[in-house]
Design a protein around this nucleic acid. Sequence first.
DNA 1: TTGAAAAACGGAACAATGTTCCGTATTTGT
DNA 2: ACAAATACGGAACATTGTTCCGTTTTTCAA
Lengths: 200, 200
Amino acid sequence: MSGKRRTQNELAEGVDRRVRVDVQRNLDALLQAAKTMFATSGVDAPVREIAEKAGVGVGTVYRHFPRRSDLVAAVFRREIDACAAAAPLLAASYEPGEALLKWIERYVAFIATKRGLAEALHSGDPVFEPLPLYFQQNLEPALGQLLHAAATAGEIRGDVDAGDLLNAIARLSGADQAQRMVALLVDGLRYGKKASSGVR
Amino acid sequence: MSGKRRTQNELAEGVDRRVRVDVQRNLDALLQAAKTMFATSGVDAPVREIAEKAGVGVGTVYRHFPRRSDLVAAVFRREIDACAAAAPLLAASYEPGEALLKWIERYVAFIATKRGLAEALHSGDPVFEPLPLYFQQNLEPALGQLLHAAATAGEIRGDVDAGDLLNAIARLSGADQAQRMVALLVDGLRYGKKASSGVR
DNA sequence: TTGAAAAACGGAACAATGTTCCGTATTTGT
DNA sequence: ACAAATACGGAACATTGTTCCGTTTTTCAA
């Protein structure tokens, strides 16, 4: 016992203790429970209930997610990723205009299942700060591609900002008439398009 | 003193005791305080603070307004009325298309000053039930007139529902890019219009 | 003017929730 | 197997909406 092993409090930097198994287990259970809870009761589901459903104490929740919103963010990150990933797939399978429409449809469906998310997303509440950022960084490029392609193809006008559109749709979704309102917005996209090839 | 006067506990129906002066005074103070509070801190301002600013106890607040949202509703009713009243005025002073645009502008400004209202308005929360109804009943006819007039003049399409548009704008407002998004929505209005007379 | 009934008042007390704290239990590395 | 490190659970605290009730104010008629 003389080599370069680390006794208890020997050093402090560059450790590599592997993550404890219970941590991973609890984190998974938590994320799973939260996902279910958010889908059924909305993003305002009480932390206590989520913790209980996951079989852990609230302390555990808050150690992993300092703020309630961090949990929300974590749960949605996955689905956001999935939604973003759908863009290139659609772009490869359909013509520009069609791909754009289909992706928006997908996006609307995603937002719709998250009762209260759209509201929380952009409502001054500082607690939900991380979410919009992640949304933007991931969904904006995805939509941007589709938008650009469609504009190049002359299907829509070219001066629409992906971020704006993302926000607008998110805000519109959740309403009873969301479908119609989004359709109206999409028509707005076509309003000043340069060519008028594919519109009937 | 024998006529038809009511002694203390004589009858129970059809009384006409005039409203107590303190009631009116407190109600005014409350409405005023709430209005200010909502404008500065948003509609989520704590009841306690509003009560304090008005110089009354929370009990008084709740006697007048059973639910927190009732207070919110009362405060906004006035401004909603004012906004609705602006429609016929604009209609009389401008041509259909112009009047519509100006009113929407007015409406956007109104919504913008109420941080959080747009979100609360249509967010499942049963507490804010009375608001949407009042909005609809007062603003829908107002916008409906303008919409109809503009459609008749061929400035916009004729299949747009006033309620839908009201909701959509309310949801869009509050965002940083609200201006642009609403503009996009308005362009959507013009998309399928029958004639193309006044558009440059 | 006066006094009792009616109405309203203020704020303590209660309930629901987010968040923090800390004594205890679990896991890890030797 | 043991000690240090880490994580755990849940009680306790803070904030806010809402209810309750003893006290105060106002009204009305004599």
